[in-house]
């Protein structure tokens, strides 16, 4: 049984066909890394998987049924922490609003997850008082606290200063080791090589190639993948 699955998904914005029949699945505990040029449909695929966009055709299933609110966690390139809430309230918000937990229960769990990303001492700080790396770790905690069945990362380190990338990748790697099901859109090739169960190449709204990282990077089959890797590395 696949954890998260997109079946023959087509998504258009006006005349532009961004996803042209993408079938994709990730098994429980797997980490799939998606690479590809900008405009290839990577982010749109994640948004469809997170139910942020409804596909024009095809469907997304989680454990062979429709995903429920909060079951698929999403981490954004620009963090998107709620600016009017401190770190703790950001992490609590979903538990109170969606899971209907009492504030004290929500607070307890939120603190545990802030500790998990190493930010418990910053719980009362507002987003504009945290570094980019800290904000992104709070955003990860905010998604994790919902106990998602899968986590999606949309270029989670692309907006970070170079010296802040590591702390976020560390959190992502430890999540992967703990068996979280993950779909990661990234330009971090080292992360893909070391952490991914398999790597996918997307181009022009289609999945061009999928292979385990060892094969994908050493002997890519598709010409499009070869060209892209040559440019990136």
């Amino acid at each position: 049984m696949s954890a998260l699955r997109a079946h023959d998904v087509v998504k258009c914005y006006g005349d532009l066909e961004v996803l042209r029949g993408v079938t994709f699945e990730v098994d429980p505990g797997q980490v799939k890394v998606i690479i590809g040029p900008s405009g290839s449909g990577k982010s749109t695929l994640l948004r469809v998987l997170a139910s942020l966009e409804a596909p024009d055709r095809g469907a997304v299933t989680l454990e062979d049924r429709a995903p429920q609110p909060g079951e698929v966690g999403m981490v954004f390139q620009r963090f998107n922490l709620f600016n009017n809430m401190c770190a703790l309230d950001n992490v609590m918000c979903g538990l109170v609003a969606v899971r209907k937990l009492s504030k004290s229960e929500a607070r307890e769990q939120a603190i545990a997850f802030l500790e998990r990303v190493g930010l418990a001492e910053h719980a009362s700080k507002y987003p504009d008082e945290l570094s980019g790396g800290q904000q992104q770790r709070v955003a990860i905690a905010r998604a994790l606290v919902m106990k998602p069945k899968a986590m999606l990362f949309d270029e989670a380190t692309s907006a970070l200063d170079i010296e802040l990338v590591r702390e976020v990748l560390d959190v992502m790697e430890s999540l992967a080791r703990e068996g979280m099901t993950m779909v990661v859109v990234t330009h971090e090739m080292r992360f893909a090589q070391h952490v991914a169960s398999s790597v996918l190449m997307m181009d022009e709204g289609r999945i061009v190639e999928e292979a385990p990282p060892a094969d994908f990077f050493s002997a890519p089959k598709e010409e499009r993948t070869q060209r892209f890797l040559a440019l990136v590395e």
Binding site: Q68, M74, F76, N80, F82, N83, C93
Partner: peptide, 23 residues
Amino acid sequence: VDPGQELAGRALGMSRRQILRRV
């Protein structure tokens, strides 16, 4: 208000009304 704020709320499963009121 940055549209990313609403997007983050929806990703958590919050309703439109909850996002409006809380965020």
